Computed example of a mutant assay.
Amino acid sequence: MKAYRTTIAAVAALGLALAAAGCGDDGDSGDGKKITIGIKFDQPGIGLKTPSGSYTGFDVDVATYIANELGHKSGDIVWKEAKSADRETLLQRGDVDFIAASYSITPTRSEKVDFAGPYLLAHQDVLIRADDNSITKPEDLNSKKLCSVTGSTSAQNVKTRIAPDAQLQEYGGYSECLTGLENNAVDALTTDDSILAGYAAQSQFEGKFKLAGFKMSNENYGIGVPKGSELKAKINAALQKMVADGTWNQYVQKNFGPANYKNEPAPQIGVIVS
């Protein structure tokens, strides 16, 4: 019996050791183990989960580069959907290691999470039909049918501050707005220019739309990390390297180029453009 109890104890000890080793698989130690990253699943050009189950977009490319710099192989990345309303909660609960999801740095958000970056300076803009020459300045949106997604603040900002006579049309998703724009049901679609460029760059829409280039706001996209996380400094170093070695420019052209997106130069780390 003594030998039997000894064997049981040894097996139990081995099991505990294996369990302890397994607990680190989703950590951020940078040694090639699993890392969980939050991205958008429904924004072409930014973060999109394709029907085949793969992931594409600027944020996906940036996040993959960062993960590789942290020591994780691409196959070790676990992608998790980070809807706009859920991003702070995902970080605070530890559901993700970091988030790259068209995540604008704001004072309110910075009270809850930390941000590395910024890594892209976007602007609120409008997308119009390629042959439309009637909208050349923001004020021209007065009396036009302006489309945005239900619950979005973008269209309200335009209607409140710039074009109070715009006819706001709220649809369930950006794809519906694009269909309406293509079919002349609406005259313009508004949100961040990077998001608009991503949609316009889709093969079925290529050449049909153009960005107006109004730059109605500054949106500093950052990488969200849990408050006080050591990852912030490591991610900033990765972003600086990505810009320096030319990869950042490659990602911009790859994901936004077909829409003729006139992007801002890569922003300086820690410099927020107000």
Rank of each mutant, 00 (worst) to 15 (best):
Val96His: 07
Leu178Met: 15
Asn184Val: 00
Gln204Tyr: 01
Lys144Pro: 09
Pro258Glu: 09
Thr153Glu: 03
Arg129Thr: 08
Leu91Gln: 06
Arg87Ile: 03
Ala163Asp: 01
Ala116Arg: 05
Asn236Gln: 03
Ile66Asn: 06
Ala259Arg: 05
Asn263Ala: 15
Lys145Ile: 10
Asp25Met: 11
Ser229Lys: 09
Ser148Pro: 01
Met242Gln: 09
Gln268Val: 00
Thr191Leu: 14
Thr191Trp: 08
Ala122Thr: 08
Leu91Gly: 04
Phe58Tyr: 15
Glu230Tyr: 01
Lys144Ala: 08
Val271Gln: 12
Thr136Glu: 14
Ala3Cys: 05
Asp86His: 06
Val96Met: 07
Tyr251Gln: 04
Ala238Gln: 02
Val252Asp: 08
Leu168His: 10
Ala130Phe: 08
Ala163His: 02
Asn249Pro: 10
Ala67Ile: 04
Met242Val: 03
Gly24Trp: 11
Ala266Gln: 03
Ile66Tyr: 10
Leu18Gln: 04
Ala237Val: 05
Trp248His: 11
Lys262Gln: 14
Phe256Ile: 06
Glu170Thr: 11
Cys23Tyr: 14
Glu170Arg: 15
Ser229Met: 11
Glu176His: 03
Ala10Phe: 06
Ser102Thr: 12
Ile128His: 09
Ala201Gln: 05
Val78Cys: 00
Phe98Ile: 07
Ser203Leu: 09
Ser194Gly: 13
Lys33Val: 03
Ser152Ile: 02
Asn142Gln: 06
Ala130Thr: 09
Asn220Asp: 15
Lys83Phe: 00
Gly222His: 04
Gly228Val: 08
Gly180Thr: 05
Gln268Gly: 01
Gly222Phe: 04
Ala266Trp: 02
Val158Met: 10
Asn68Glu: 15
Leu16Met: 08
Ser110Phe: 00
Ser29Trp: 13
Lys112Glu: 12
Lys137Asn: 10
Ala244Asn: 13
Gln124Ile: 13
Val113Pro: 01
Leu189Gly: 09
Val60Gly: 10
Ser52His: 04
Ala200Ser: 14
Asp131Cys: 05
Asp193Phe: 04
Ile135Ala: 07
Cys23Ile: 11
Asn68Lys: 13
Asp125Thr: 04
Gln204Met: 05
Ser229Asp: 06
Leu178Tyr: 14
Asn218Val: 06
Phe41Ile: 05
Val243Gly: 02
Thr150Pro: 00
Leu120Gly: 05
Ile195Met: 11
Val186Glu: 06
Tyr261Cys: 08
Gly47Arg: 10
Pro267Gly: 06
Met242Ala: 07
Lys210Thr: 04
Met1Asn: 07
